[in-house]
């Protein structure tokens, strides 16, 4: 599976120092806060709510994330510059990683 072909929500923003892609759940409070945090910082990013797509597709996505990052996907799962990742939303960690 090519993750870039997924139907992401694209959020525009003036800051794009890093490419940020967030795998989230529409029902999760921390996911909601991570997304709001980036919007508040006027950061450009993409996100997708895995709980709103077919089971087969999201299982493939989780398998790709598991293999690439050697972690069991928990949410929010942020992929930074297609190379690093953050799991969960701990604001200081996100600020440090994104240079905010």
């Amino acid at each position: 599976m090519n993750l870039n072909e997924l139907d992401y929500q694209v959020v525009e923003g003036s800051r794009r120092d890093h490419e940020v892609v967030i795998y989230a759940l529409s029902t999760c409070g921390f996911c909601k806060r991570a997304i709001s945090f980036l919007k508040d910082k006027d950061y450009a990013f993409r996100y997708i709510h895995l709980d709103q797509i077919p089971l087969e597709t999201k299982n493939e996505i989780k398998q790709v994330l598991r293999e690439r990052f050697k972690e069991n996907p928990a949410f929010p799962f942020a992929v930074i510059d297609d190379s690093r990742h953050l799991i969960g939303f701990i604001q200081p960690d996100w600020e440090k990683t994104l240079g905010l």
Binding site: L25, T27, C31, D51, F75
Partner: peptide, 8 residues
């Protein structure tokens, strides 16, 4: 759990 995805 609202922060866990269903496994089907």
């Amino acid at each position: 759990c609202p922060c866990r995805d269903s496994d089907g």
